[in-house]
Design a protein around this nucleic acid. Sequence first.
DNA 1: CTGAAAGCGCTAACAT
DNA 2: ATGTTAGCGCTTTCAG
Lengths: 344, 344
Amino acid sequence: MTSTIADVAARAGVSTATVSRVLSGVGGARPATRERVVEAARMLGYRPSGVARSLKLRTTRTYGLIVTDIENPFFPELVRAVEDAARGDGYAILLCNAADDPDREGAYLDLLVDRRVDGVIIAASSLGGRHREWLAAAPLPVVLVNCSAPGVRLPSIASDNVAGGRLAAEHLVSLGHRRIGALTAPPRNADGPDRLRGVRAGLEAAGLDAAALPVASDEAGVAGGERAMRELLAAAPDTTGVAAYNDLMAIGAMRAVRADGRLVPRDVSVVGFDDVDLAAFVDPPLTTIAQSTADMGRWAVARLKEAVSRNGNGATPGGSTAEVILPVHLVVRGSTARPVGLAG
Amino acid sequence: MTSTIADVAARAGVSTATVSRVLSGVGGARPATRERVVEAARMLGYRPSGVARSLKLRTTRTYGLIVTDIENPFFPELVRAVEDAARGDGYAILLCNAADDPDREGAYLDLLVDRRVDGVIIAASSLGGRHREWLAAAPLPVVLVNCSAPGVRLPSIASDNVAGGRLAAEHLVSLGHRRIGALTAPPRNADGPDRLRGVRAGLEAAGLDAAALPVASDEAGVAGGERAMRELLAAAPDTTGVAAYNDLMAIGAMRAVRADGRLVPRDVSVVGFDDVDLAAFVDPPLTTIAQSTADMGRWAVARLKEAVSRNGNGATPGGSTAEVILPVHLVVRGSTARPVGLAG
DNA sequence: CTGAAAGCGCTAACAT
DNA sequence: ATGTTAGCGCTTTCAG
């Protein structure tokens, strides 16, 4: 249906090699020839087949991007950053939404290999743990975003999760809170423990009993946050401050607090993590820990590009297997305040 | 680096044809042979090359999905629906984020053709208008989601935008509002006019002067909504109710109202469009028009699948060039109320 | 049941 | 400057 290079060649009265040269702009051609080729291609509406080219050139100019949950606004931001960075080099993105399903993550890994993408960016925090051996012997360049594979050396970029947790705790403490709780993601999630560790560190630094920190765990969405907060409130009803795993859980937590007849931040303060676009617009505006998705996306793509040009694996010996940790910062908004009973 | 079918064949002591048959499960093979092939493939960690297969089979098992702006939460919802529907058939999604840039949309159209995707779903409302002639002669199956190309018959699915606009207006009117305004997207956007038309229809039905409707237009994000509302408030300071193009603009509008020293919904009511997940969590919870992204995604993929199996173009004669319009409904939350001065 | 061989559409030596 | 040719890795007749 669509015309091939042979059609163009025939029409222009030249060989396919010439067409290829002219159209890809490498290797000279007599102006007259070039003219005829271009014209023939135009007439035929010729578009070179990327798949044929990929087979020949052994590069698909495509990256795979696996995300935990595209409906968590953090990921669209990352997707955008990745795509923006990739687009410049003519790369396209095969998007794989794990939808919080670990099996699906694994399936996508295979799919991406089969498709021979030039590299994959994994931003699925639960993936590192489960597919360790796969990652250790990955047949293509891999870079990890906000997730790590214990024991596997792969280029990775992540926010400073423990610093973030600590910032959250310190903020709460500095406000005067003493009965602090935390909401965390399911165990399969890799960042959860780090953020929690940070919270504990912050508590300890303030002389509080970190070991006694009440923690509730659930899925990392609004509904999960709501459930987790309900649970936390049941276990530790006198909690006045809460550090949530992410913004979505924080939003859910605020709902649970309200459903319990209390007010945010008057009765309980909550701080999120991510600083998603909409965090500023929820009720009340969310105090949270901001991370730089743009930097993550750019960096990840740069690493992949590097790996591709070396034509090596992400974990290639001699390659830069850097693991960068991005600084995070606290954004104070309306969901945190001094606990009642404390003078302003 | 990765092994090919020839490697497997050599190792199993059979021909590549046999390997192909065994591994793809078509055509019988003596159990012993099959065994040897499977074992060889396993040993070698053989993964068939999708690109070679695509070249031979003339299908990439990939759909392209062009969205206006992945950071607008409406689109991740759609992406999810599309991916869920496509995944079942082993299809992957090449995601193209136009990022509100019409040029970029066009570039992606070409990219998708070059990649020989099996079909493309266009959910970029500004695309239909600009690339009409391209769409009219699209070299591959196309389906339009929430956008239309005037004069081009292509399968399309969209929310009933005029009904939605009307619902919004009627809601405001029924609350007692008389000085109503509207916020719309830039002219390049195709749904804007329909929604606006609906708003006017609702006004007229209530005996109000639709022609006098104050309208401000800006980019379809939070910032755009904020600017547009500011403008509207300047032009029509006595406005008490506003219908926004989408939820993001509505959120921006609420900010502008507040910045102007007024309260939502006490001084001005605002209604959005989309019913994005987070609409329920903003301050105040947004009254909005809900549409079904899941249905859209499912339908779009089904049409593409159909077109692929017919191996025809989306607009193929005889093909179902259906244009479906999905019903929408009003979701009343906290951003709308009776205007002050009217008894409850 | 299995193998030989052609060919999908392109690029890159290698000739000429 | 241009043409010939050999594949890239797979599937699929067509023979045997």
